[in-house]
Amino acid sequence: MSDILAILFASAGFDGATQGILGEGRRLADTLSCKLHALIIGPQNEPMNSSVAAIADRVIAVDQSEISEYDTEPYLCVLVAVCKQLSPRVALLANDTYSQELAPRLAHRLGGSAVGDVTELKSHLDALRVTRSVYGGKAAAIIELKRYPAVVWLRARAFAPAEMRTERVAQIEKFTLDLSGDFRACIIERKREASGATRLEDAQVIVSGGRGLGGPEPFEELRQLADAIGAQMGASRAACDAGWVPPSWQVGQTGKKVAPGLYIAVAISGASQHLAGISDAKVVAAINIDPDAPIFKRCRFGIVEDYRKVVPLLRETLSGTKK
């Protein structure tokens, strides 16, 4: 019992999160001189499989009708069965809805321990130590795991991807499991909210709005600004709680953890819980009427002004339609 297992959803494809998990898994396996296994769960896709096979030492695919779409209980059964077979010391997941839901239960069933939203992993003597932010991003804790396997969900996009090997590509092994259990909670309806072409988590530019916008209509104006620069839209919790925009727009500790090249915060004060979601953003800019708003402490540049004056003019300038 010493290997690392990367738990990947086929539906995610070879996205930034998948690459981050594999990158950190590879690094950890190389440091500990152990193997990196990868589990790909759900309807398989070829480009992802061959990329994963060029990083992991062993790839296990579970693809059967009961798990063609995510459902908590059967997915959990798959993870438990595969972990029992492989006995990894560390299992790594991403920080999406499903991974967060599965990880602690997986740890419990294996007699291990779980920890989440991790930004750094280190082995310390025989134990695993991880870093995660706590107190709404105001502090960072270093946590030592006491029970193994350690099931860790990572702030996956924050980790560097691994190089792909050209020689020694792993074989893909198919596992089939009995999933005929009587599950007492099942998903009966799934709805994807219409959003832009890119997921917020993968967006390169994000325009985000907060309570200071004062209502749903100004988000339309922000949308036009976003369109002018090819940005995705985000929001603060206050704007989501007010019902101005859907909950899936929420950025922050308990919303999306984003990592864009540019994040523009409009009428967002910059509470630590909001900043916790943009810690991996490269450049942050803000439009805020209050020069003392904490958001400016996280900004590369910003403008102290009423957004109602700035946004329309900025859109015209950036879209080249300014008269």
Partner: peptide, 8 residues
Amino acid sequence: TDAGWEIF
């Protein structure tokens, strides 16, 4: 969910 919602 990350993308929208689900009913159980």
